[in-house]
């Protein structure tokens, strides 16, 4: 991991209001990979009876993390935007636990970055959700 790159990417993400309000943190960035976390918060609960986090908040985390992975790829000159993102919800995240997601840009062309991601809570062997998406590759 390159500490300079992580610092720059961290600054970039902390400047995004939506990520900041949700207290998302970038914990790792590589060449086409990224890892982010989303702490448990009562504001993002989707089912008040169980305290389970809403899928939308998981979407936000995975979208941001996939975007970061696309931008971190050595062949990506600058910014990116989501073209599409599909999320599969495997199980409810355990209330009270931080959700961590890892994204990987597994293929990139001049115009499109293909990214997949997995999200988990403390039980890392049973994913909470997976995502696959296509992102734009924007010129400098």
């Amino acid at each position: 991991m390159n500490p300079e790159k992580l610092k720059m990417a961290e600054q970039f993400i902390s400047a995004v209001p939506h990520c900041k309000t949700l207290n998302m943190k970038l914990t790792n960035i590589g060449d086409g990979t990224a890892e982010m976390s989303l702490p448990y918060d009562l504001r993002i609960v989707g089912d008040p009876e169980t305290g389970v986090v809403h899928g939308g908040a998981v979407s936000s985390l995975m979208d941001t993390c996939c975007g970061a992975a696309a931008m971190s790829h050595p062949s990506s000159p600058a910014g990116t935007a989501t073209i599409d993102l599909r999320i599969d919800y495997m199980r409810a995240a355990t209330p009270g636990q931080t959700i961590v997601t890892r994204a990987e840009c597994y293929h990139i062309t001049r115009s499109v970055a293909f990214v997949r991601a997995v999200a988990m809570d403390d039980d890392v062997d049973r994913p909470v959700a997976t995502a696959t998406g296509a992102f734009t590759v924007e010129g400098k």
């Binding site: 939506h18 939308g56 908040a57 993102l85 999320i87």
Partner: peptide, 13 residues
């Protein structure tokens, strides 16, 4: 621009 995740949350809701 709006965050893709906020848009996804809006649509899912």
């Amino acid at each position: 621009a709006l965050h893709g995740g906020a848009i996804a949350g809006f649509l899912e809701t």
